[in-house]
């Protein structure tokens, strides 16, 4: 048996609280990151990702306390993204107990940051978030570009070239999100996913658009993803992580049971 494909629930955290709520299992406080993370650990999640969406700089350090609390009670890998600007931000999150740190806009603004960070903390700790959006006209050869600011701001950077460059700069993993599909629940952009997974040697986490369990399987089988990330289908109790794994396993995908 080889490496298991991972299922990763993703949580938005604002000023230390899980936002948009989580309605599953028997979690007493759906806003408490520790309770939610523990619930997902018990449900069989292979990893957890926190996206810190805290806007106010006054509250920026709250994520460090959240990470400390979660890492001291939940013993599966924890990735934290959002608000990373400097290598020192990476270090502080890792020291607080994060296993991996996701870098997004800061990498677009200054790609060397990825090189500096991986030199300091090792590739295995650095995940580069690749937010891509289709820019080709219907009928043309598909092309995607990197967008920032939640998909609103174009950068003109070709997504595949960017993925290759980030891998060369030492990223240990890519978190690929289709900004076209994010929140739509119609499935991953499989063409984008396949193009990126074919282009790089490092693991790729597919994200954006999951609405049912077959979407997760498709991300692996058709998109070539090494891990699949989803939020709402798990948070609102539509499906459990165990159901997702059983579904994937029934299609011949190796999962950790």
């Amino acid at each position: 048996m080889g490496l298991a494909k991972r299922i990763i629930p993703c949580l938005d955290v604002d000023a230390g609280r899980v936002v948009k709520g989580v309605k599953f299992l028997e979690i007493r406080d759906a806003g408490d990151p520790v309770s939610v993370a523990r619930g997902y650990d018990e449900a069989g999640a292979d990893e957890i990702t926190f996206l810190d969406i805290t806007a106010s700089s006054d509250n920026r350090d709250t994520i460090l306390h959240v990470v400390e609390e979660v890492a001291s009670q939940v013993f599966i890998p924890l990735t934290v993204g959002g608000g990373i600007r400097e290598v020192s931000d990476v270090r502080r999150l890792l020291n607080a107990g994060a296993d991996k740190v996701g870098i997004n806009t800061a990498a677009v603004n200054r790609p060397e940051l990825v090189k500096e960070a991986t030199d300091k903390v090792g590739s295995q700790c650095i995940v580069v978030a690749v937010d891509a959006k289709s820019v080709s006209a219907p009928g043309d050869a598909p092309r995607w570009e990197i967008f920032t600011h939640g998909g609103r701001k174009a950068t003109g950077i070709d997504a595949i070239e960017w993925a290759v460059k980030m891998a060369e700069y030492g990223a240990g993993e890519l978190l690929l999100t289709s900004m076209d599909r994010d929140g739509t629940k119609i499935g991953f952009d499989l063409e984008l996913t396949k193009s990126i997974t074919d282009a790089v040697e490092i693991p790729v986490i597919a994200s954006g658009g999951v609405g049912n369990l077959q979407h997760l399987s498709d991300g692996v089988l058709k998109g070539g993803a090494d891990a699949v990330l989803a939020a709402s289908i798990f948070h609102f109790g539509e499906y459990t992580v165990a159901e997702a794994k059983a579904h994937m396993a029934s299609q011949g995908i190796e999962v950790r049971l």
Partner: peptide
Amino acid sequence: RLKVPHMGWSE
């Protein structure tokens, strides 16, 4: 093809 880093859950 196998990815490097070897990242995730193996037996």
